[in-house]
Design a protein around this nucleic acid. Structure first.
Length: 645
RNA sequence: GCCGGAGUAGCUCAGUGGCCAGAGCAGCCGACUUGUAAUCGGCAGGUCAGGGGUUCGACUCCCCUCUCCGGCUCCA
């Protein structure tokens, strides 16, 4: 018997049947055999030892392949479990997949392990990889599996619940064995433990069994694993780079914001420089909104309970709301607002609206308060009190299409103005539980999809992830080191207009119900500030920087300095005229990441020149006064906002 | 909320079951009058997160609370 194997280049090779991936790779070349990790047969990954006995397409997956990294990491997870069980024979082991940049495995230890034990586990892993054990796949019956894993309760649970991901079918269970170690697994795996060379255990943390809060909490050990030392090193360096960019660290170093034990979790205090930064960010956005058909509204921080009953927040969102504020004398209950929409609806309701007014767009920097669980708080990225650049658009159903398109383009351009130009979207569609008609959902979802397509925003569809009241688009921006941050959200809402019974008078003089679009583009000003700080590693572009220019003097040139400052009075200028060396002034200016330094001494005063350092550009000396001022103004210019840009 | 780790001067960090807890930077005072990346000297600065307990003695050991860090869960 012979089989015809078709390779990715279209060539067909003929082999004795059955043939394995090994044999195919070997027949093509020794180099390929050396780099081979697994095979892809008919879109399914299999071990190199998998026997092929039909005419089929086969691709040899090598270490160069992105798919191979997942397999490497999956195998790394196995060896982690093997090492842990060797060292802690009474540990229970759960599941261990490959994840972005690495892998993890979940364990239940008799006594919780500590981070410093990772070193030892890593050592045992090294021993296992050096001994070059083969990964051997076998299929056994559930009965046999139950016998083998009789002391492993977590595995028994997996066997009983038939998780195909974990190698458990209706009757047959797939396992991998190397040395004494056996685990449930679909595979494939790298051929031998010796393929693992460049890995590192990174941290240990808690994780709920099967991701369910009400289940037992396991200990998760994380690691990273790569084919080459260079890749591993690069990853570790990138981690360090991310740490340097941490907005919490930068916020402290640059004097932007602080927190306080007395203040409590989830809120920050903005220091003068940070407040300026926020204000610049907000002002720019506000201007863009006013130029693009939005009206500014302003609403308070608390509202009576009836409001939150009507909006449904007390039914659907009370877990995330701060406890009520009771005024006993008046028998009134108030709540801090977790969202701005009910207030904007009240503004809308105050007037009778004609179809001629629509779409009506109400915009506000609205501070909201959500009682987030302590464990999720994270610097400015996840707060209990934060400010949304929030707007609610009231429009007719047939305006949704145009409105969403305008909005999407507005958002992409706005984010781009701040320097975030790589945008990707998630489109969340109708969930199982929803309100409104299928027709409305389809139309709205199509509007969103069509806008994304027309504006060429790359997007993924998250089926069933929409809110119960309408579909949504989330925009993510990629930062300078490739991290993805969720920023904008655009949500169509069929529910609130009903809840509040809002209306407009249509062209036939009949009452009609508008649709609402909720949208926040920066998301939260606090969060957005943090993202910008991390994106720019603290080196904010000139127009955003809290201090834009440091004027550094040498000797007594105060009069000349004053002339310069007067000519730059619409900018944020700081004068350092202390009697210290220039080197120290430069050092301080550098540390505060001021984008422009003007250096003037008596020489400059007499020749009407200055030295100018512009961050990221060359340092210039003896620059003519006018030319210097012009080039400074040019480099501090805020980006023009236009929807075509 | 859960698991694990941590909290020492304004900041970054040393340190020990036992005399008065240290350094650098920042601050203040003085000298230096400075041209491209930290000038020198001095001074001051701490209820060792807060509270309780064990002990002859606690910053150190135990318990509780607060805050932070890494995750999990959550994220209209």
């Amino acid at each position: 018997m012979h089989v015809d194997i078709t390779l990715p280049d279209g060539s067909v090779r003929n082999y004795e049947s059955p043939v394995t991936g090994y044999q195919i790779a070997e027949s093509i070349g020794p180099r390929l055999l050396k780099d081979a990790i697994c095979v892809e047969i008919d879109n399914k990954f299999q071990d190199l030892s998998f026997e092929i006995s039909e005419n089929i397409n086969v691709r040899i997956v090598t270490t160069k392949d992105l798919d191979a990294l997942h397999i490497l990491r999956h195998s790394s997870a196995h060896i982690l479990a093997q090492a842990v069980l060797n060292l802690y024979p009474n540990a229970q082991f759960g599941v261990g997949p490959s994840i972005e940049n690495g892998f993890y495995y979940d364990f239940l230890f008799e006594t919780p392990i500590k981070e410093n034990e990772l070193e030892n586990i890593e050592k045992e892993m090294k021993r296992i990889t050096k001994s070059a054990q083969k990964f051997v796949r076998s299929e056994i019956t559930k009965k046999e599996a139950v016998k083998i894993f009789k002391n492993q309760n977590l595995k028994l649970e997996l066997i009983e619940s038939a998780e195909s991901d974990e190698g458990v079918g209706e009757e047959i269970v797939s396992t991998y064995t190397n040395d004494e170690f056996i685990d449930l697994c679909m595979g494939p795996h790298v051929p031998s433990t010796s393929v693992l060379k460049h890995f590192k255990l990174t941290k240990v943390s808690g994780a709920y069994w099967r991701g369910n809060e009400s289940n037992v909490q396991l200990q998760r050990i994380y690691g990273t694993s790569w084919f080459t030392k260079e890749d591993l090193d690069q990853y570790l360096i990138q981690q360090e780079e991310a740490e340097k960019r941490d907005h919490r660290k930068l916020g402290n170093e640059l004097d932007l914001f602080t927190s306080s034990e007395e203040l409590g979790s989830g809120n920050f205090l903005w220091k003068p420089k940070g407040a300026v930064l926020r204000d610049v960010i907000e002002s720019y956005s506000k201007k863009a909104h006013l130029q693009n058909g939005y009206s500014l509204v302003n609403t308070p921080h608390i509202g009576k309970s009836i409001l939150w009953e009507t909006s449904g927040h007390l039914d659907h969102y009370s877990e995330n709301m701060y406890p009520p504020i009771n005024h006993e004398e008046n028998n009134e209950t108030y709540y801090l607002k977790p969202m701005n929409c009910p207030f904007h609806i009240l503004v809308y309701k105050n007037d009778l609206h004609s179809y001629k007014e629509l779409p009506l767009r109400y915009f506000e920097f609205g501070s909201v308060y959500r009682y987030e669980k302590t464990g999720v708080l994270h610097g400015l990225l996840r707060l209990r009190g934060f400010t949304q650049d929030d707007a609610h658009i009231f429009c007719s159903t047939d305006q949704i299409n145009d409105e969403v398109k305008t909005l999407l383009s507005f958002s992409v351009n706005l984010l781009g103005s701040y320097g975030l130009t790589e945008i990707e979207a998630d489109l969340s569609t109708k969930p199982k539980k929803y309100i409104g008609s299928d027709k409305d959902w389809d139309n709205a979802t199509n509007s969103l999809k069509q806008s994304l397509t027309e504006l060429e925003v790359p997007f993924q569809t998250a089926e069933g992830e929409g809110a119960f009241y309408g579909p949504k688009i989330d925009l993510h921006a990629k930062d300078a080191i490739g991290r993805r941050w969720q920023l904008s959200t655009i949500q169509i809402d069929f529910a609130q207009p009903d809840n509040f019974d809002i209306e407009y008078v249509n062209s036939e003089n009949k009452k009609s119900r508008p649709v609402m679009i909720h949208r926040a583009l920066l998301g939260s000003v606090e969060r957005f500030t943090a993202v910008l700080l991390e994106h720019y590693a603290g080196n904010l572009p000139g127009w955003l920087s809290p201090i834009q220019i440091d004027v550094l003097t040498i000797g007594n040139v105060n009069e000349y300095a004053q002339t310069i400052i007067d000519d730059l009075k619409s900018y944020r200028v700081n004068l350092d005229d202390r009697n210290i060396r220039l080197g120290e002034k430069l050092h301080n200016s550098e540390k505060s990441k001021t984008p422009i330094q003007i250096i003037i001494g008596e020489k400059d005063a007499s020749s009407n020149t200055m030295a100018v350092n512009i961050f990221g550009k060359e340092n210039m000396k003896d620059v003519d006064y006018k030319r210097a001022i012009n080039s400074i103004k040019k480099s501090l210019k805020e980006p023009e906002f236009s929807l075509d840009g």
